[in-house]
Computed example of a mutant assay.
Amino acid sequence: MYLPSFRLDRKLAVITGASKGIGRAVALSFAESGADLVLIARNKDPLQGVQKEAEELGSNVVTICEDVKNYSSIIRQLDDTIEDRDVDIWVNNAGINIRSQAIEVTSEEMDQIIDINMKSSFFLAQAAAKRMKKQGGGKIINMSSVGGHVALRTGVVYAMTKSAIIQMTKNLAMEWGGDNILVNAIGPWYFPTALTEELLKDEQYVSDILARTPLKRIGKLEELAGAAVFLASDASNYVTGQTLFVDGGMTIYGF
């Protein structure tokens, strides 16, 4: 009675940016927890690789090879693929960062980051909510960042979009709570992904990171995926509008 379920048995989860890094880790953790998956990413080969891994864990998986900027196409393909099946969980994970100094940011860079990180997340969340309203509820998880909460050295436009994700999460949770649609966000610090690979090769940069991280280490992807499983599961049924920072304590300090 007092032990909530963290299982996702036969729930359907849609995950963007699912071919690598955080998206792959979330997909495989969901598969281990019993979910069926719709995996969305731009690159076909790595996407199919994650599909195979998830299927080996017992998940039923379909893929949509598409850039999230083309969210209208994703929505059409999803409707054709799963038809009237309920979407229980939607994870807006796809994102990019261009680490320009503020004085050097171009209009083209800004448009690219906003389109992928913010605009696509909103319209895909909107599409998820339309389905969830009809089916009686669901869960939406948006990927933010510690950069949406504290100042970082570079990547001001990235930080702007991730701050917007936090506020969007709050507003959507308020608007859709009456329809039993729970909307939360995750705010990662540094994890080994394609976006951080080069930075984590710089010993001085890593030393600076760890100096502001109480746990004194870089996060493991499975630790981040665990937060996503919690927010997707019945264990979080009274949690909405929140951003869960998975950061080793970094946001205590700032960076």
Rank of each mutant, 00 (worst) to 15 (best):
A41N: 02
S33M: 11
M143V: 14
T161S: 12
G17F: 09
I114N: 05
L195R: 05
A173N: 07
V206M: 06
A227L: 05
E222N: 15
G21H: 01
Q77W: 00
Y158S: 04
E223K: 09
A31I: 09
T161F: 08
G23Y: 05
N237S: 15
W176M: 07
S100N: 13
R212A: 12
N171H: 05
Q135A: 13
A102V: 07
I103V: 14
H149G: 11
I75F: 01
C65D: 01
I141H: 03
D9R: 08
G177F: 01
R24M: 10
A164L: 01
V246M: 08
N97D: 13
A13V: 02
I114C: 09
L200K: 07
L172D: 06
T213C: 11
T196P: 00
V61M: 04
M1D: 11
G17S: 13
Q126F: 11
A232Q: 03
L224H: 12
G178A: 06
G148T: 07
T154F: 12
Y190W: 15
T81S: 15
G136H: 03
L3E: 15
F255D: 12
A225C: 11
V91L: 03
W189P: 02
G187Y: 12
A151L: 07
S59M: 03
L8R: 11
L182P: 00
K133V: 15
E223T: 06
K44M: 09
T161L: 07
T196E: 10
S145A: 09
K220Y: 14
P46K: 08
E198C: 03
A35Y: 05
F191I: 01
W90F: 14
G136N: 01
V105C: 06
V157R: 05
P46G: 10
A235K: 01
T63N: 04
G226R: 06
R7Q: 13
D234M: 08
